[in-house]
Design a protein around this nucleic acid. Structure first.
Lengths: 179, 179
DNA sequence: GTCTATAATTTGATAGAC
DNA sequence: GTCTATCAAATTATAGAC
């Protein structure tokens, strides 16, 4: 794996645990076994790293959703797959959505980073709204906003309290509305 | 107003906007018009300030809920009042719940601070569960976890996207389940 | 309670050798 | 692409005067 990818992987994991400001170039470099100065070759400024992170995160998410839609026919299965993307990350890696974590500190982030976060929310609310519309819900946009908010909040509370039952209750709530 | 309270007020507002690590003693002192060294007289370590913040926040919240219960008889009104506490803060001050913001960076915070956050979530889930039980819901604990997660997530997404309709959709969802 | 002065550490960042 | 060396700024924190 090339260094840029490795940097992004480590930075992403750490930021999803502690937020943007708690992650330093030195921390990342130390985990890689190189010097912090080398990171600046790949990402000159921390803002560049943050921007690349949100970009990659949104792209990977969109790509995973595209795969889902091509495999499954029913909109309820699409929504279930969306929830599962979050569920797997939290249960198998203990990680909260990057954009949910950074979204909590938005006002203190570089503009390019906060813009990437907004775009992630916007894009995924639109995607969810399409599914709820196909499902025949009368207020698809509101369902979409509620679903993404609930998932984001439940990840944070669940990880923070180290109590997976909080996330499970949220998932149950979302799935029940699909019947 | 005494200095300690003023420090707490400024620190709380700033942390609710940008998170724990983005707020410095110098920032707070500058806004007060004093020197950062003076802050250490009131809160020797930043961890002390963070701990006092979550403590006061939880106390104020519990106190507001107590007032509500003494004024209103019906459990659905208690839940509505709970939601309103959040709603007023977001709409009139543009501020997200302190514990939702800090919860997102829990793993990087001093233990005493993260413990205070967990306690806030735990206490309020218990309180909400009591209301849902009195309402006759069959899974009050799950309703409570979902409600607090949804409110927390909706505040973050709404503030981050500068789109109050996200929070409104969440509130609508919670209120609809009370009928 | 607030100040000046200062220490110790961390952090983002750059220059230039290899 | 990574290193050494280094810097400037920021940050938490302390000592002691007023």
């Amino acid at each position: 794996m090339d260094s840029a990818t490795q940097i992004l992987d480590i930075a992403e994991r750490r930021m999803r645990q502690t937020g943007y400001n708690a992650v330093s170039y030195r921390d990342i470099a130390a985990e890689m076994g190189i010097k912090s100065a080398s990171l600046h070759y790949h990402f000159p400024k921390k803002e560049d790293l943050g921007t690349a992170l949100t970009q990659r995160y949104a792209d990977n998410f969109a790509s995973a959703l595209k795969d889902t839609v091509s495999r499954e026919a029913k909109p309820e299965d699409h929504i279930r797959a969306f929830v599962d993307l979050y569920s797997v990350e939290l249960k198998q890696r203990g990680l909260v959505c990057l954009c949910a974590v950074l979204g909590a500190e938005t006002e203190g982030l570089p503009e390019r980073v906060s813009h990437g976060i907004k775009r992630f929310f916007d894009t995924n609310i639109d995607w969810l709204a399409q599914q709820y519309e196909a499902l025949g819900k009368d207020t698809p946009a509101e369902h979409a906003k509620t679903t993404l908010s609930l998932l984001s909040g439940a990840m944070i509370l669940s990880a923070s309290s180290d109590d997976i039952s909080i996330f499970d209750a949220a998932v149950e709530n979302i799935f029940r509305a699909l019947d």
